[in-house]
Design a protein around this nucleic acid. Sequence first.
DNA 1: CTTAACGCCTGAAGGC
DNA 2: TGCCTTCAGGCGTTAA
Length: 281
Amino acid sequence: MPELPEVETIVRGLKTFVPGKTVRRLEVRHAKVAARHGTQAFQNLLTGQTFTGVERRGKFLHFRFSSGFSLVVHLRMTGKFIVHTHGPVPDHPHIRLVFLFTDRTALIYSDLRIFGSFGVYRPEERIPEFECLGRDPVTEKIPAEWFLSQCRQRSIPVKVLLLDQKVLCGIGNIYACEALFRARIDPRLPARKITLKQAALLLREIRAILKLAIRHNGTSVSDFRNVDDKTGGFQKLLKVYGREGQACPRCRRTTIRRIKQAQRSTYFCPKCQGTRPSLDR
DNA sequence: CTTAACGCCTGAAGGC
DNA sequence: TGCCTTCAGGCGTTAA
C-alpha cells in the first residue's frame, strides 16, 4: 500500500514512539512474516533489543537497535504499524506480529495480505535490500542529466521506469501517475525517447508531489493509516489516480483514461499528456 | 543484459 | 441474494 510519502509518514510517527523501547516479548502470529529467519530465530534475534531509531530508505523502514543490529521492513501492499499504548493487544485477524515492550506498550504489525517482509542484520552485515536501491528523489539532489542517461538505456514505458526502485526509489503506482500528469508526459512514452527538458521537468514534479504528499501525511486510497490510525489527507489532491471517466482537471475537455502497463493501472489524460513532446509551459 | 508474465494473499466491489 | 470475476498503492522469480 504505502509509497514514499506514506512510509515517511509512518516513520515520523514511529520516531516519536519507538526510541528507547526494549522488546520484552515478540509474538509471531503468522509465521510467514518471520520466514526469512524462522520464527524461533526471529524471536531470539529481537527479544531484549532496545530500539534507538528508525529511518526511511526508499519504501523500506530501517529500525536500529542499541546493539548495532538492524531490522529492515517492507510493508508491500497492506502492511502497517500501529502504536499501542493501553490495555491488552486486540485479537484482530490481520495482526501478524506484536512487539511487547518492557514498559507494557506495544508495536503492532498488521498485514492483510502478508506480503510484507522483515529482515534482521548484525552490525557489520551488509543489507541486501539497500544494495541496489536507486536514488531518493526527496532526500537527494538528482541531476537531470543522470536521470536522462538512466532513461536513455531503457525501452520500457516511462511510467514503468518510474516504478523501478533501482533507478529512483520510493515511487509507486499512484505517484508515478500523478507526477506524469503534472509533467504532461504520456505514460506510454518509451523512456529512451525522453528529452532533457522532460527529464528535468519530471524530476521536479516527482519531488514536488512527494513532498506535498508528505505534508498531507500521505494518501489514503484504500486503507492507509498512520501509526495513530489516522488517515492521510492527500487523496483529495489526486488529479488522475482512480479518476477514470472523470473530466481532466486541467483541460476539462477530456475524460481520464485507464490503461494497463506492466499489470498495473495507469491513469492519464490523453489530451494533456499527448505523445508528441509538448512544448511545455 | 533486458522485458514480460506469474505468483504471493485476502477481501472488497462489480457484473450477471 | 449469491456466485463469479476482477481489482488492489509491490516486487521477487522465472521465462523468453
